Amino acid sequence: MEGTSMIRLSILSLTGILLCGVARSAPNDAETQMVIVVGAGGTDSFEKQFSQVATQLEDVAQTADMVSQTIGASDLQDDKKTIRDRLQEVMVSVKRDGERPLWIVLIGHGTFTRGVAKFNLTGPDVSADELNDWLEPIERPIVLINTSSASAPFINALSKKGRTIVTATQSGNEVNTTRFAEFFAKAIADPKSDLDHDDAISVFESVLAAASQTKQSYQREDRLATEHALIDDNGDGLGTPILKIDESTTDPMKLDGRSARRISISLLDGLKWSEEQLAERAKLESHLEELRQQKADLDEAEYERQLEQILLKIAKLYRSVHEPTSSPQRVPQG
């Protein structure tokens, strides 16, 4: 019994300290991309507001050593290409595979008419189905944050394994201008959003903070909230209200939000991950999820034995990232 207790203590320690880092720490290098799309404002006030949010996100990307591209009215050229054309070009040109997430943030207004959800651009709009077609060849993880009104149907169109989709509204009928973008841009750079204090802000932490602050802004004005953010990262295309995830009694293995907790922007830890290390981390996380699903069918001692093995491999991987060893350079031949 004493040995089992020591193993359990070791597992709890590794789970509480190391797993948080494995689940949420993100790579900080130039290959990670964030595509920021600034929609048509319609008025000078909205144009300014959307531009400010885009600038905040550009600063976040720069701090995290991410390559960002901003697409908006400033991209209009004399070659008659529209913003929609430019967006399509970027979507089909980004790296298609790998472990590093592709972030796409839509800032602006949206519509949902006759069953078609669209994000409003200067010129022709882009529909959720069109965006899904452009993203279909991409196999790397995707994080899409649609902060526009009537954005919920984007979940139905884009939901897929390996994608985290967040919308500012819970239906296509929430058509009023949203506030979510402003709070999201602040939350993703605010250390207060880092609930587990791992020096990285996960997708889930940032959108949870943004959804909470959005709700509070309506309460302060004694107004009925006209937007309720959703998240979908389990690929079922249904979405879950962000603020109700922790209150749900649904099987935790089927809940949205699990993948969103594992994708983050590292703002403070400065860790740099290679593609090989990211691939190994993804494999270990997958094994960990599979083991958790099998827990009810395993003997307690066997479960703990397998769990400890995985966590020790995770610890070793993190040690290699924290303390990289310099390998001898290859001498060119000939």
Rank of each mutant, 00 (worst) to 15 (best):
G3P: 10
L12Q: 14
C20D: 08
V22H: 05
M34I: 12
V35H: 02
V38S: 10
S45I: 13
F50W: 01
D59G: 04
V60K: 15
A61T: 04
S68P: 07
K80C: 04
K80H: 13
R84F: 03
R86D: 03
L87S: 07
Q88L: 03
Q88S: 11
M91E: 00
V92I: 11
W103K: 05
T111M: 08
F112M: 00
K118A: 06
F119N: 00
T122L: 08
P124A: 03
V126S: 03
D129T: 15
L131N: 02
N132F: 07
W134M: 10
P141C: 05
L144N: 06
I145P: 10
K160S: 12
R163A: 03
N173M: 11
E174P: 00
T178I: 05
T178P: 07
T178W: 00
A181M: 04
I188W: 04
D190V: 07
S193M: 04
S193C: 01
L195V: 11
L195A: 12
I201M: 13
K215C: 01
D222F: 12
R223H: 14
T226C: 02
A229F: 03
G239I: 09
D251T: 02
M253S: 08
K254W: 06
R262A: 11
S264I: 00
S274P: 03
E276C: 03
L278H: 06
L284V: 09
E302G: 07
Q306L: 10
L307Q: 13
I310F: 04
Y318H: 08
T325F: 15
S327W: 08
P332M: 14
G334R: 09
